[in-house]
Nucleic acid binder design. Structure first.
Lengths: 335, 335
DNA sequence: TCATTTCCTGCAAACGTTTGCGAATACGTT
DNA sequence: AACGTATTCGCAAACGTTTGCAGGAAATGA
């Protein structure tokens, strides 16, 4: 079956394609009666404008490009879902790319999206992103860009983030108030700003409580379960047993969680644990995991909303804005 | 910055656009020297063909449409990741849509994808899908379609599935061999074929062991944690305490898991549990969950591979094929 | 010398849409 | 009768690419 075109309608009605085009878009030049006839036939033919032809004229599609490190990661899957939700209702579709935490692939993904003439890009950068030329080139081509969670600091783009430092501060502060004294931090990759900020929050809380910072209690690693497991493992092997652990995110917390249980230590009796993100998993482990609620779905939604606003409001002059969404410490069984 | 076009190259070289086009595609009509000059300048200009213009000619993009019930669901996120992986290496991008288990939205999504002239569609249907006209219309438009996991039985399309019935049979059979006698089944929505088949496998295993089927031990519900929780709750309230539970999937198993723990019953001492899918969560709960490994990532990959084969091999005559991937019973602490 | 072949390239149309400009018609005004 | 002014519509170009066909030039053969 073929798609009906504007020309099909024009021929059938004995008028020109341009008249049909104008009639369909309610151009004032066109007589009411003609509009009626055109619209009626368009409905009959189930006519839908060919978005490709439109894109060729505008040099722009109605597709939003999304770049994330990993689709499978709970946080990103949820954010993508939020982006899709907003895009769907605004008449956009989303192309989803994953960088697999790989800089080169992120660059390729961005270039492909530019080539595809996406209307805009929502991105969260990889751990290994060395520079932001690819993002700058998107902006130079007039493609609006919005970061969420993990942003490039040197790109003039809007971002939807949380206050990592303050959230971390609150979590650690809570641990201190709760009586924990020897608090370890399972930190993420040093390259990621969000991890640096969470670490800073940890330091700030200790400082405020006049607890000296012990380098041995800070373990750098990745962002997955295994990383948390390994970090905890090395602590245990070094006989450094903290009385609480603040993890850079939930998977890392869960990994540590498992290693702690394996060691026969009780949670929260021997060691308390706090994660970060409020992934679904945190309510399913035993004991349930104290964590910081990071509104992933809402972050995706908000990022998409800002992007669409940028796409549709031609006043590109709009200065990049930074939206900081609220986090909340969720106290559960692990502390 | 503007994108370089074929005409830019042609003008600069004082030749025609058609010659440039042919030179770039190594057409034998074009003299070697001309090709060299064209390619050199193309590289200088960083020329990349405009996919939109190409699509307008071919009436087809290099985008693969993906429709899933929910992006956030671990199984689907993982499958999408597999699809993206294959698509990326084959030079395709993926548009991801979620139906939210809603039939009407699935129809809209499909129509949007058809409108966008995607090169093909990979889909897993919603729980509420009443008919398959939308999928048939995609096929009628020459858009190849591949289902994974949840397929429409009455559509002549390839599918990538698992042997649900047999997998369920193995799980329940294992429970029986292990000595469990009063085995409940937390079934999924009756509308979903995969759920019917898992139920059938459950029945078959009981029959084979000459255990009579007790309707009271079969609870129908949804596919989320809360559904499992509620099903288990109603069993407990009705004082029907099975000695094992076979759940239609992992989230449901986890929901039941929680309710069982709340009731003060021991897993696996009082009640054994088996899930289905081998979601990541199953290794993180305590005790770890016995489940059936369903290769979600591979299912996505395979579906994408079949689809791309269909797209690129013009012999549309190829009969739809059904690929059944292997599952494996993973025995863990919950049984 | 002329016809034929080979090699290389350009013209123009096509994909479906949008839009500036001009034109035709009808009507009212001097 | 001559002119001005709405009103309504069509022509053609443009977006960037691909491709059938034709045509020019050079080379070959008769």
């Amino acid at each position: 079956m073929r798609h009906a075109t504007i020309t099909d309608i024009a021929k059938k009605l004995g008028i020109s394609a341009s008249t049909v085009s104008r009639a369909l878009s309610d151009h004032p030049d066109i007589k009411e009666e003609t509009k009626k006839r055109v619209k009626k036939l368009a409905k009959e033919f189930n006519y839908k404008p060919n978005p490709i032809a439109q894109s060729l004229k505008n040099n722009r599609t109605t597709i939003i490009g999304v770049i994330v490190p990993e689709i499978q990661h709970d946080f990103f899957a949820s954010a993508i879902s939020g982006i899709e939700e907003v895009a769907y209702h605004a008449g956009y579709t989303i192309i989803v790319c994953q960088s697999n935490e790989n800089f080169e692939r992120e660059v390729v993904n961005t270039n492909v999206l530019i080539q595809q003439r996406v209307a805009g890009i929502v991105a969260s950068i990889s751990q290994t992103t060395k520079n932001s030329d690819h993002f700058k080139s998107a902006i130079a081509r007039g493609i609006p860009l919005v970061f969420f969670d993990r942003a490039c600091e040197d790109v003039a783009a809007s971002k939807v983030i949380i206050d990592d430092s303050n959230s971390a501060f609150n979590a650690v502060n809570y641990l201190i108030k709760k009586g924990y004294k020897k608090i370890a931090h399972l930190a993420g990759p040093k390259a990621l700003e969000i991890c640096k900020r969470r670490l800073a929050g940890y330091n700030n809380a200790l400082n405020k409580a006049h607890i000296s910072i012990d380098k041995d209690l800070i373990c750098y690693g990745g962002l997955h379960e295994t990383d948390g497991y390994n970090s905890m493992d090395s602590l245990i092997k070094k006989k450094i047993i903290p009385d609480a652990v603040f993890a850079v995110n939930d998977p890392v917390a869960i990994g540590a969680f498992q290693r702690i249980k394996e060691a026969g230590l009780k949670i929260p009796g021997d060691i308390g644990i706090v994660g970060f993100s409020n992934n679904k998993i945190t309510t399913l482990v035993d004991p349930t995991l104290t964590t910081i609620d990071q509104p992933s779905f809402e972050m995706g939604k908000k990022a998409a909303e800002i992007l669409i606003e940028l796409i549709e409001n031609e006043k590109k002059s709009a200065k990049p804005k930074t939206v900081t969404l609220e986090t909340k410490l969720i106290i559960r069984g692990s502390t």
